[in-house]
Design a protein around this nucleic acid. Sequence first.
RNA 1: GCCCCCGUAGCCCAAUCGGCAGAGGCAGGCGCCUUAAAAGCGCCUCAGUGCGGGUUCGAACCCCGCCGGGGGCACCA
Length: 981
Amino acid sequence: MSTTDQSAPASGAASPGDAPAQRYTAALAAQLELAWQQRWADEGTFEAPNPSGPWGDAAAVAGREPLFVMDMFPYPSGAGLHVGHPLGYIATDVWARYQRMNGRNVLHTLGYDAFGLPAEQYAVQTGQHPRVTTEANIANMRRQLRRLGLAHDARRSISTIDPDYYRWTQWIFREIFESWYDPEFLRPDGGRGAARPISELREAYASGRRQPEDGSTWADLDDVARRRLVDAQRLAYVSDAPVNWCPGLGTVLANEEVTADGRSERGNFPVVKRPLRQWMMRITAYADRLVDDLDRLDWPEPVKAMQRHWIGRSTGAQVRFALLDGPAEGGELEVFTTRPDTLFGVTFMVVAPEHSALDDLPATWPAGTPENWTGGAATPAEAVAAYRAQAAARSEAERTDEGRTKTGVFTGLHAVNPITGTAVPVFTADYVLAGYGTGAIMAVPGQDERDFAFAERFELPVVRTVQPPEDFEGGAYTGAGPAINSSNDDVDLDGLEVAEAKERITAHLERTGAGRAVTTYRLRDWLFSRQRYWGEPFPIVYDEDGLPVAVPESQLPVLLPDVPDYSPRTFAPDDVTSEPSPPLSRVPEWVNVTLDLGDGPKQYRRETNTMPNWAGSCWYELRYLDPQNGQKLVDPEVERYWMGPRAERAVRAADGTAVKDTGGVDLYVGGVEHAVLHLLYSRFWHKVLFDLGHVSSQEPFRRLFNQGYIQADAFTDVRGTYVPAAEVEETTSPTGAREFTWQGEPVTREYGKMGKSLKNVVTPDDMYEAYGADTFRVYEMSMGPLDDSRPWETRAVVGSQRFLQRLWRNVVDEATGEVLVTDAPADPATRALVHRTAAGVAADYEALRFNTAVSKLIELNNELTKLSSVPREAAEAMVLMVAPLAPHIAEELWSRLGHSGSLTFEQFPQADPALLVQQTVTCVVQLQGKVRDRLEVPADITEATLRELALASPALQRALDGRGVRTVIVRAPKLVNVVPA
RNA sequence: GCCCCCGUAGCCCAAUCGGCAGAGGCAGGCGCCUUAAAAGCGCCUCAGUGCGGGUUCGAACCCCGCCGGGGGCACCA
């Protein structure tokens, strides 16, 4: 390589006109960028040593703080990258390069999340095997990213479709399958509840320490019954519960993948609920820990809020109401409420249409049943049957669309309030959800808006049990206030505030046995199987009893078979009667196998579902650490080194106290769209691995940062058709409005995403070609704060190129290539500016404020440009400071300045504190907040002196215009504010 | 409907603890260099912080109410 070769760029390069031979043009940038990229690769510059194992290097690790930086796992799209994609990658690269220059041992790499629906669909379109297209896409993306100059450890890049990788995905599944959740287990970290080997559960049953809940006895159960009992408690289990079936995609989906209006997040197809035999993950066992540990993470608050809401923990009480009337007499109706303090205000009850209490109803309407309660039916059974049919026919979306109008019907039943002894009517209505709490509620219209709306509709009484403010005029009052109308001989809540009232009534309920304190969650178990081809096969076979057995560790991976027919069987989007048909089930020679699982060769049938897209991304951060390990998913020593908890990295709570560190990745950057899906699933898997002793960190990602999106203008003509955005011309009308034309015709600007169909895609390749990678990197970082979304503007990129060009010219003669810096010391002003810049830029880099770091560097560079010649000390500092942002030009200049090695591990310029304090400062003199004068004063001036100086200011005196002085506020040395009498 | 974030020059964005509204870039203007040109050089223009109140000696920043934009949730008892 020839980094010091000062000959002109290759003649074939697109160098405009007769530009000086050594001008920093796109062509010269390309030349030196490619050369440096090759040198970094050849020298393994960014390969991070491990403390042990195949890449272990104790000497290289000693004395350097480890730092683990990650980007969210990209999916290798067939369309390639556009300029919006690398934003986060550049940001993490700048940060990581900066940290390396401060002595950190940085691990930064990027792998590919290559299984999943989009890869399969793309393969279907192109008629090729998904592996072929996916691997081609990965190769293209690797090329685009290498050209960007990312300082990744290429050895650690993994791909989820690699059998050496998915072997461990299957291994983790196996670990989860072979575990149950013991809520009593005392964890090493002090908490209660942990995943434990399933053998412990079996032993507990065998020894009699634990009894089956259904009253049976372990000793009396046959082998199959015992297995069913144990299987039902595994963390990965088979369930027949209703699931989200999406005919249009031909697969089932997790709750997290279904939108609020009942459609698939991907493809926007209708989704219906129907019972199907599917694999589930018991994520609900971790609900409490997933909520509680959010407080220990340095994550954006909105993401934490979304996870908290998704988990939806609410505390309250379950209360039992005795049923009267008809065949149900003697039965009970159990409700969940977060407001047990309002029990005195219960005037009716509501059960979900699916509730089992509706199976036994009185034969006739009770005497005096109002006409509008019956739905026009002759008997309660008919009314309820009709309502159930109506509710079942309604989709999730329709139920929501109906908005505020409550529907429902009386069941003929009454139930007795256990506190007041009053009998209240029981209704069924679809505003009560079967899947939450107990599927039944006590209705308190005085304190609940939904209940109030229902009560109005059916003319039910309203009893207030919380005193609203005097000016309150609404229906239901949900706010704070003292309890009223809430006492009898046994219990008295009157006058208590809501929280106290809850406490007292809950204690009373527990004492009398009428209820108990209970916590419920919105979170459901995670539906884990998909009827697709392009995913990880389950390491599961079924024996002659039809029960699942894990494939032994020694037989992993279970390879995804090559099949002629890999395309999924999909259906008309509204075909609700369709049945899932996994592609793997159509390969009988793969499905039916003879295996010896320890008791001789037997026939088994393989699981034909595959894992969801999320599986591979649930643990990939761990494999980055030790990708070549054939014995373990990660060497525990290596995991502890990179991700283990460290007291000094703990986040601070709101009150400033340090929270116990969870460990995990030091910086994880990606889009906010994964707030609940990927980030919740991977936290769950990580905690299981922690419980089972495979990792020392309690959370996968200690710090999370959500980058914004780069958006782009798109333009439509009069017909509404998109026109090529690159060809649109902008003019400013006489009135100052911006106007846009394409081929002379006016077009309309739309602001949105970048995409092929919008004809507004700009690719990194376009930018490399026109400006070079460094310019592109600087521009992306200078556009605005990393977490803001902002519009792409190609014509503005030139500003970043001018900056690098000026930097180049400050060091190198454009015509001769001669190095121009002088060895004379910098003048004090220049030196001070260099040090101020170093301090500011370091702080900006550290805090991911790259836009302001760029502006400080431009400012310094502009100052250096004004000097007759640039002193070496300033030039070298400048080069080192710009290196994280524009590494190629920095390496090249560093090299031309006479250094033989890469600057990757050079110390980032450190500011001398003595040079940061300014000798004199400008003090503003204000009169009532308005600036009237400016004074140059010594930085260490005393308040009294400054006060006198300011009051003596002629400009101030003029402004005072003879008025007296009431107060003088002095903030030495920068400000004096005079308040006139 | 509820919750969260954001509104600063024609555009993208700075302003560290409530203390001089402008760091940087784009676009625009003038000039220089040039046979010519710009992806060159120099200089310049441009806002009083979405609107209305309040607190304060002092508000882009804190509080209240609107308006506009973005995101999340949406019968979760």
